[in-house]
Design a protein around this nucleic acid. Structure first.
Lengths: 239, 239
DNA sequence: ACAAAAGTGTTCGTACTACACCCATGC
DNA sequence: GCATGGGTGTAGTACGAACACTTTTGT
């Protein structure tokens, strides 16, 4: 076996990294978490929180670790989206990267720049400037994945605080899909799914009729899923 | 820069491969193309057509090349699905693999075992035995991707011959989704999309009323897509 | 009182569901 | 003539689209 291995040595000269696209929702806009690098290459550029995977580390675990080390985010559910491996994408040699993405509640985390990050911040997805490596493309691909996913999986709730209004939820969908949705129909559809719990409370201190607050019932969703229920929302027309 | 690179050497000891999940449809059943390996590890095991990516090769191009070299298939549109990188998945060291998948017409290709393949053959997806590496898992993931994809993209046609009957198409969906669909409604839905051209011909030599033959109008689909049309079929109830 | 957003009733049309029935061919 | 799928008509229903109106709060 060691004999056999010999002839394959030429293939074992690559490295791989993980890069995390962390989406948040704040101020009615879709955000993505970026770090400012303090290491070559692309020193001082904004980039996705990512780094090399260690020799004996599982990919998913590496994504978790790197995210924690660069941004302080912990216990975040990460999902793989796509791998990127153009031969010239990294100055130091052949590096392919496996991209992960996640949806989080902005308010839940205190950001701590560390490791190769000298700064961490939420950026508007709409206003991303030049990033390190091919990270703009990675975000584009992750965003497409998100657009499809929130249509058929109740993942949008992960971006909202535990108590939210129906209008919050609608704005979220409108921001991600870049469409306008009709209020009445959106509400009817969402409520008919029986996935929300009416918290019996309302907003306070708003200069208009306060909106009722809801929470997402994860357990209820799992029950319904068992019975063959499919979450699905329609995208309206483009803005 | 070379100085900087030094300290990263420890990361550049991995290899990566591509593995292709090629789906076909024949005899009313969903098939996947496998090769019998003639190389360690997993010598003599059935496996997905895959191999190491070369140092300066693009991932997508590598998938194409490897598929050609192992099976003779050329000019196949491959799409990336997922990457697999458990630390222990390959005996020779750290190897992560990027999985691709495709849908082809079984009749279009003559299979030629070559390179590390001593045999190439279509296997029923339902009856896959023990495969090399984690290839069973890879197929499972690719199959899930296929199930979702044929719902919203007109890719199912890629599995059928250029002239097919509506029943062929229905059987294809039934096989992939493992459901029974209602004939009348399936036909109405498909025909209402205006994506099929009635070829004016019919089957011959069948012991019942011969079915009309249709072809898929790729151009028509692209036109409709421009206008905002969305292909979508509903899965019926599970079998 | 007024602005601003929450929240509801209802009408209309389209499209999916579920059956039942007739048609063309080979043996 | 009979078995075997191909192909069609239609009634009932559910659901999305569109729109107008009422309610509740802060200033």
């Amino acid at each position: 076996m060691v004999q056999a291995k010999k002839s394959f040595d030429g293939f074992f000269k690559s490295a791989f990294t993980v890069d995390n696209v962390i989406f948040g929702f704040d101020d009615g806009k879709l955000k993505v978490l970026l770090i400012k690098r303090n290491e070559e290459p692309f020193n001082d550029f904004w980039a996705l929180p990512g780094y090399f995977v260690q020799q004996h580390e599982d990919l998913d675990a590496a994504a978790q670790r790197v995210l924690r080390e660069t941004t302080g985010l912990e216990n975040v559910y990460l999902e793989q989206v796509h791998s990127f491996g153009s031969p010239g994408r990294h100055d130091f040699g052949r590096v392919i990267t496996v991209a992960y993405y996640s949806l989080v509640k902005v308010a839940d985390f205190e950001l701590h720049a560390a490791s190769i990050a000298e700064e961490v911040a939420w950026h508007d997805v709409e206003e991303i400037s030049t990033l390190a490596f091919d990270h703009e493309e990675i975000i584009r691909v992750a965003l497409n994945s998100l657009k499809r996913r929130i249509r058929t999986q109740p993942v949008g709730f992960k971006l909202l605080p535990p108590a939210f209004t129906l209008t919050d939820l609608q704005h979220l969908y409108e921001a991600v899909w870049e469409v306008d949705l009709e209020k009445r129909n959106f509400r009817k559809k969402i409520l008919s799914m029986n996935l929300l719990r009416d918290l019996g409370r309302s907003q306070t201190g708003v200069a208009h009729r306060p909106a009722r607050l809801y929470s997402f019932e994860e357990n209820r969703y799992r029950e319904l899923e068992e019975e063959g229920f499919n979450f699905e929302l329609k995208e309206g027309k483009r803005k």
